[in-house]
Nucleic acid binder design. Structure first.
Lengths: 223, 223
DNA sequence: CGGTGGGTTGAGGTATTTCAAGGCTCGTGG
DNA sequence: CCACGAGCCTTGAAATACCTCAACCCACCG
């Protein structure tokens, strides 16, 4: 669709080594670029590739027939996404900002896993780690208050993308809201509340750069 | 703790064949019985066994420090649970009613998967199917209304345990509520509403036996 | 510059929770 | 055999956390 591609068969199968430290088998690798907002793949589409974010950020989500959206995960630099055991994608994936991904053909991966137990174990480990994330997120969505959700979100992102003391969020308030099962206003209010309590501060006026001033206090909100 | 055990080393490794049609390797198998309310394993405990429900029902859940509970799944006859890739349980599992389980030592399973690709694939398939369930449940918890959640729950249970036209739920309203991220009163009201609309009816006065009178109409509530 | 895409904040509305009362079933013990 | 309490469920009324609607601000961009 908007697949603003930029085919660049890479020569080093570095991707594999990320995928759970695998063998050095040769696999067709390419890099693609997606523009902000572009769809990488759609829910229920056959899964032809597995992806790794090189730079940028991806959201993967499900939609209800009336447009309600639930984001299941954000994928940041280094993350692998689009891995499906059955051959069908169960989320739609979109670039949040301009994003570069590396990709491998799913079938060739399955092929390799067939004879290489290390690769097979890597696939299992990745699936299990996605499962753990989903399980924790169920608890958040089912039982946590808005403040607790936002605090948990900040703590999660802090680990994943704070550099030089500041966390630069690629996603909008709406994205955060759809990840946390809230509205964007509620997210905004929770962030303001945390700012008011001196737990965090904003940098620049775009409000996407956050400095965590009091991590221990923030952690108290995340039960 | 309450492990009301009833050790009975089984002789037929039928368990394996359930686990994704695997090989016929010999594995130590046992059956255990848990009384209603008994804990099978606790969250964060080392995972020594993998379990299969023979008869009865299990709930697995997470707790917040203040007691809020989120049930991640119900395990009914035939279901396998407690499978962890890392060696630690991420849920507490309890018997909802008197329950018989079969169990295998986790390590021996991992051992077998090491050399038998079929077993390894079975583990991956199971993990992936747990993941799919969790992903769908995130959408439910994050974005569906109480009526939609209850409708989805009934449809899920209908597939899994309706016999002779009636669905006999093993779990209480509180369990359902903690599965759906609601309160027990809200669940009760939603069920009453569906009954009022002629979508379902109750059998007996324990209210745990449900007859689905209008499946298509019920499905309309599940977006 | 005007418009568009965020973001914040206020006011009011509402779905769901909380609190409370009452009913039914079942097991236990007098 | 009946009384009693515990567990479970339903229903009503009141409270509230979050949502909706709306106004406004700011940055960015053609």
């Amino acid at each position: 669709m908007f697949v603003n591609l930029n085919a660049t068969p890479s020569t080093k199968p570095k991707f594999l080594s990320e995928l759970g430290s695998l063998s050095q088998a040769e696999i067709a690798l390419s890099e693609f670029k997606y523009r902000r907002g572009a769809e990488v793949f759609g829910e229920a589409e056959p899964a032809e590739y597995v992806y790794q974010v090189i730079e940028g950020a991806i959201r993967s989500y499900k939609l209800l027939s009336d447009g309600r959206r639930q984001i299941g995960a954000f994928h940041l630099a280094g993350d692998i996404f689009g891995l499906e055991n059955g051959g069908i994608h169960r989320f739609t994936a979109e670039a949040i900002v301009d994003t570069t991904v590396r990709l491998v053909k799913r079938v060739s991966l399955a092929h390799i896993a067939e004879r290489d137990a290390t690769v097979a174990r890597g696939l299992l480990t990745m699936t299990a780690s996605n499962l753990k994330h989903a399980e924790d997120h169920m608890l958040l969505l089912g039982r946590k208050t808005s403040l607790e959700r936002v605090a948990a979100f900040l703590l999660e992102m802090d680990v994943r993308l704070t550099a030089a003391g500041v966390m630069a969020l690629p996603m909008s308030r709406r994205d955060i809201a759809d990840y946390l099962g809230l509205t964007l206003e509620t997210v905004s209010r929770a962030l303001s509340a945390l700012e008011g309590q001196g737990v965090l501060g904003f940098l620049g006026q775009t409000q996407r750069q956050i400095v965590l001033l009091d991590r221990p206090k923030l952690a108290e909100f995340d039960l």
